[in-house]
Write a protein that binds this DNA or RNA. Structure first.
Length: 661
DNA sequence: TGCGGCGGCGCC
DNA sequence: AAAGGGCGCCGCCGCA
């Protein structure tokens, strides 16, 4: 039996700013109402605090194999912290909870109930009464909650409607597999453990950054006679620049265009600012302003604030930072709140962070440019608890290995042999030098950028943007020649892109027949979500392309990650399933499978997993177990699952006293 | 005043 | 025909 439920709650805590964990455990948080649906027989309950809990409802909850909610972590926390403790609902084992957002995501549908419903039905209109009610009832006004019985009754109706919408939607989706459910649970246990923030450091850094932000604003204001007061008001300054900049410098702020017919657009992004600052002819006045924007151009303040908001007030740990299958197309994890998936890599070492922390404590200067020094502090603000260390292990060049392995081709196997060779003999060089030499070049950087950027059908654009990340500046014509050389040296890849595209096309043309390309298979099911193209990965995990069809000879599908404007009746955005895109999807998805399995093994074997990042795990062992766990971590990471035979995995985990380097 | 759109930024 | 894509967050700006 499956029971679906949906809580409406109110609190003095800002849910968006502080996250569900801090929200649910705050004493001011309370339930407004909760709707329940027994999915087996359609029976419904709407419960308000103070009411007796119907006996049948208690029974249904106890007998249910699954308790479903849209964003189940939220409802589970409310249930445990409030419904059980304050109102006597029966205790439910954690294993019962199932998240229907996770179900949306593995179906490659948008996560929000409204967006997913719109995606399935273009005529569906968002019900704005819900958000209006939430504004009125869920947050206090002047310290007081609105308890108007009419509004609360409306909220109850809305709540019941939401549960029905959820049931309706999930009935049209592929159910979560047992492995999906297991891995959602594993991710939640990691979220439960949380990760510790150095509260003192975050507080000091936040204050320092706020002060610096004001100072930069003051300087800007002086330079512009009050026209621009914040380093983030780039659009305003861009307008000024468009008027004042000499014609010969305008190219610096023009966005690169794909086609000559595209309209000219302007930007003052990092690259544009860099170009301007290199120009001799730039007026000193403009130079001063742009330099200020350049130095202040990051959001350090807010990130430290975000950490502090989300940290548990007693333990300092941030919970709920990881989202299972947050990236629906590939089912990779994503991260939110304390966003551990996009923290600046170029950061202070633990020792440097310690010195800077001491300086801030004493009110001394921390060096210039201040915002940069602070941005480098974000990562090391995440710390192991006292008496613990971090072990961080990441798989070496995982995607560059998985792609050739998936191609199951002689050329791909040669690449894998090469990985094995350098794994065993690191002193003889590495894959990047070897790749450069394939292309008759001796530049390791070029080899590295090529390996990292060209595997998925990208050309000059992909190469150049990756090159920029590694600080390599080259001309387009040179980039084009590298692309050609790499493709000639790796014909297996080019061939594989074509095979994937062809297999997907044949699958859609002939529903319910299986078409293989390398180690993956495609099959089209017309009955699911307007026709879903499945890609079956080597471990039988499937990734999905809903609303797939053939347009002018190409397979296209719904693009869940882009939402049309709200209330628009346009068809949902679509994407073309070309070879490079398919290659990228299966590579990232297979890598995600490796991580899911690793995390499951580690959590089930009681490793203290506190975080992960696509190809990386973070453990928080006691000091005394570090040596043993370091070795175990490596052997877990390098042990290939049964389904991935022939894939060489390499990981050399390291010990840290702060997150970073 | 609050919301959504959008540009910008960082990571894998 | 050619093609790099996937995330989440911050802040401004225009709109209601």
């Amino acid at each position: 039996m499956i029971v679906g439920l949906d809580f409406e709650t109110r609190s003095e805590v800002d849910l968006k700013a502080c996250g569900a964990d801090v929200y649910a455990s705050d004493p001011s948080t309370d339930i407004i109402c909760c709707s329940f649906i027994n999915k087996d027989n359609g029976q419904e309950w709407l419960w308000y605090p103070g009411q007796k809990i119907p006996h049948e409802l208690i029974l249904a909850l106890q007998l249910a194999t699954d308790v479903e909610a849209h964003n189940a972590r939220f409802d589970e926390l409310i249930y445990e912290c409030i419904a059980v403790s304050d109102y006597g609902f029966p205790i439910l084992p954690k294993e019962k909870w199932v998240c229907t957002i996770a179900q949306c995501r593995v179906n490659a549908m948008p996560a929000s109930l409204d967006a997913a419903t719109r995606a399935a039905d273009a005529k569906h209109k968002k019900d704005h009464t819900g958000s209006a009610l939430i504004r009125k009832l869920c947050v206090p006004k002047d310290g007081v909650f609105n308890t108007d019985p009419t509004l609360i009754a409306k909220m109850g109706k809305y709540c019941m409607k939401d549960s029905r919408a959820m049931v309706g939607l999930t009935n049209t989706l592929r159910p979560l597999s047992d492995i999906d459910k297991r891995d959602w649970q594993i991710n939640e246990r990691i979220n439960d453990r949380g990760i510790l923030v150095d509260i003192e450091l975050a507080t000091l850094a936040q204050a320092y950054a706020a002060q610096e932000k004001d100072e930069l604003g003051r300087q800007l204001s002086n330079l512009t006679d009050g026209a621009i007061t914040k380093v983030t008001q780039t659009t305003k300054f861009l307008k000024v620049l468009k008027e004042e900049l000499p014609a010969e410098l305008m190219h610096c702020v023009q966005k690169p265009r794909k086609a000559a017919s595209d309209p000219v657009k302007y930007t003052l992004d990092k690259a544009a600012r860099g170009l301007l600052l290199e120009e001799e002819g730039l007026e000193p006045h403009h130079r001063d302003i742009i330099t200020l924007i350049h130095e202040g151009g990051n959001s350090s303040v807010s990130k430290f604030t975000a950490m502090l908001n989300r940290a548990d007030p007693i333990t300092g740990r941030v919970h709920g930072a990881f989202i299972f299958a947050g990236a629906g197309q590939t089912q990779r994890y994503s991260s939110k709140g304390l966003q551990l998936h996009n923290m600046r890599r170029d950061c202070h070492s633990a020792d440097e962070a310690e010195i800077l922390k001491a300086k801030m404590r004493r009110g001394e200067s921390i060096g210039e440019p201040v915002m940069d020094v602070l941005a480098k502090m974000l990562r090391p603000t995440v710390v192991p608890a006292k008496g613990h260390k971090f072990i961080v292990g990441d798989w070496s060049a995982i995607e560059a290995r998985v792609l050739p392995w998936l191609s199951d081709s002689p050329g791909g196997r040669k690449v894998l042999d090469r990985f094995r060779h350098y794994d065993a003999n690191p002193e003889k060089g590495d894959i990047y030098t070897a790749t450069a030499s394939d292309m008759s070049m001796d530049d390791r950087q070029i080899g590295k950028v090529a390996v990292l950027s060209l595997g998925f059908g990208g050309a000059v654009g992909a190469f150049q943007s990756m090159a920029k990340n590694y600080g390599v500046t080259i001309s387009d014509s040179y980039a084009l020649s590298v692309v050609g050389k790499w493709r000639r040296a790796n014909p297996w890849a080019v061939k594989f892109w074509g095979e994937l595209e062809k297999a997907a096309l044949k699958a859609v043309r002939r529903p319910r027949t299986v078409h293989a390309a390398g180690r993956v298979k495609y099959v089209f099911t017309p009955e699911l979500l307007g026709g879903t193209l499945f890609c079956i990965l080597p471990n039988d995990t499937v990734i999905q392309y809903p609303y797939a069809r053939i347009d002018r000879g190409n397979v296209t599908a719904m693009k869940a990650s882009v939402q049309p404007k709200s209330d628009s009746e346009d068809e949902w955005p679509r994407m073309s399933l070309w070879g490079g895109f398919l290659a990228e999807n299966i590579t990232q998805a297979s890598s995600a499978c490796l991580l899911r399995e690793l995390l499951a093994d580690m959590v089930e074997d009681e490793f203290p997993v506190v975080g992960h990042c696509h190809d990386e795990v973070i453990l928080e062992p006691h000091d005394y177990e570090v040596d043993v766990m370091l070795e175990e971590c490596q052997s877990y990471m390098e042990a290939c699952p049964e389904w991935a035979k022939g894939l060489p995995l390499r990981a050399v985990p390291e010990v840290f006293t702060r997150y970073g380097k």
